[in-house]
């Protein structure tokens, strides 16, 4: 399991714009770099990031080889109701990780 730093407010007022920041540990090997033996290292990157608020997708991103290691993604959404936020990263070599955070809306 990759380490994750997720910054999600625990609670928010209804209608408030909340900022979410997600940082995940990943090499993001581009597939263009030669290794110590001169052979090109195979690509190993995260391809997709999806954030669901309840059942609704509020943010998603496609990632490419030019994105640096340990990708940091920051975005905002509007707090509408108390629900679980689900974060899912998926990528090469079957990489998949899901994290959840509960947001209480008052």
């Amino acid at each position: 399991m990759a380490r994750v730093l997720l910054n999600v407010p625990r609670s928010a007022a209804r209608g408030e714009v909340i900022e979410i920041r997600a940082l995940i540990q990943h090499e993001m090997e581009t597939g263009y770099r030669p290794g110590a033996n001169g052979e090109v290292l195979p690509r190993d990157i995260i391809r997709r990031f999806v954030c669901r608020y309840g059942n609704e997708v509020v943010f998603q991103a496609e990632l490419f080889p030019a994105i640096s290691a340990n990708p940091f993604i920051s975005f905002t959404t509007v707090a509408t109701e108390s629900a679980t936020l689900t974060f899912h990263w998926s990528g090469d070599n079957g990489f998949a990780q899901t994290e959840t955070r509960v947001l209480a809306v008052t």
Partner: peptide
């Protein structure tokens, strides 16, 4: 910002 500092991943580890 401990939530944006990628070094904190290693500290967690």
């Amino acid at each position: 910002d401990d939530m944006a500092n990628p070094g904190m991943l290693s500290v967690q580890e």
